[in-house]
């Protein structure tokens, strides 16, 4: 039944990753002879590690913020009041906005001559470097905003279908609102939260457009590095671009694997 969907998916993923891996190892050169080599990795090891650290930091911070706000929003949505319905509609609308548009919006909002600085009457020289600054705050803000809406909808879906009656049962056993969140809602929402957060993390790790638009030129995250090298006028940079892409993919697989390994150990998953 799933074979028609599985075959093209495996072909694209395995083919894409395999081609990138072969290119990064000199086995699929655009010019010159085929020669196995790890030069694309070792020759730029320092840059790769710096880019990896930056990518992980951006993805981790924005995912944690998105998870906290996403769970909070999900609880308000499940609460069923009018503000919950507004939040659900806002979250659904937010998810449909492309990241590139979101990045441009955040840029216009947070730049030193942006809407926020003008509304608050802060001159550009006194406005903190949110866009293109050393702490990548605009990048983190954009990812956190967009991914919090995604996490909120996934977690709210789980809470609404599975948890509402459990919440009542817990209340009648004397659990306060906080205790119900701590001992019932959160454990039951954990698989959905873990999976949606992992998706958000992996997406943030692998996407380039927001960091490319709102971040600094150096150091650069892995995805931006891969794009820059791929678009380089020198065709010999292609293996290095592929090395950055392969490293991103490996880390993503590791994160996804760790998430499922942890989930399989929970009572709920069993």
């Amino acid at each position: 039944m799933v074979l028609p969907a599985l075959v093209p998916a495996v072909f694209v993923v395995a083919g894409g990753v395999g081609a990138a891996a072969m290119q990064s190892l000199g086995l699929m050169p655009l010019v010159g002879p085929v020669r196995f080599s790890a030069d694309a990795y070792t020759g730029q090891a320092e840059d790769l590690f710096r880019a990896l650290g930056l990518s992980l930091a951006i993805a981790a911070v924005s995912t944690v913020i998105a998870a906290v706000f996403g769970v909070g929003t999900a609880l308000l949505i499940v609460g069923g009041r009018w503000c919950g319905r507004i939040l659900a509609a806002t979250s659904a609308a937010t998810v449909t906005i492309p990241h590139l548009i979101g990045a441009a919006t955040v840029g216009l909002l947070l730049a030193d001559s942006g809407v926020l600085a003008r509304v608050l009457g802060v001159p550009p020289e006194l406005w903190p470097s949110l866009v293109g600054g050393p702490w990548w705050l605009a990048v983190v803000a954009e990812y956190a905003w967009k991914e919090s809406a995604f996490i909120a909808l996934i977690v709210a879906g789980t809470l609404i279908t599975r948890v509402a009656r459990f919440d009542e049962a817990a209340a009648l056993l004397g659990a306060t609102r906080w205790m119900r969140f701590r001992f019932v809602m959160l454990p039951l929402a954990l698989p959905a939260l873990a999976i949606s957060s992992t998706i958000a993390f992996v997406y943030t790790l692998g996407s380039y457009e927001v960091a490319w638009l709102l971040g600094r030129t150096y150091p650069e995250p892995l995805a931006v590095m891969a794009l820059r090298l791929f678009n380089s006028v020198s065709l010999t940079a292609r293996p290095e671009a592929a090395a950055a892409a392969v490293l991103t993919t490996l880390v993503s697989f590791l994160v996804v694997g760790a998430c499922f390994w942890a989930l399989r150990k929970t009572a709920l998953w069993r």
Binding site: E168, A169, L172, A175, T176, L188, L268
Partner: peptide, 29 residues
């Protein structure tokens, strides 16, 4: 509030917490 009334309730569905063992379900309160 419901949690402060000292009233217990058993529903048509047992609504046992799936992430807890049998004993921990009973120990919940």
């Amino acid at each position: 509030a419901a949690e402060k009334r000292g009233i217990g309730m058993v529903f048509q569905r047992p609504l046992l917490f799936p992430h807890l063992s049998v004993l921990d379900n009973i120990a919940f309160s």
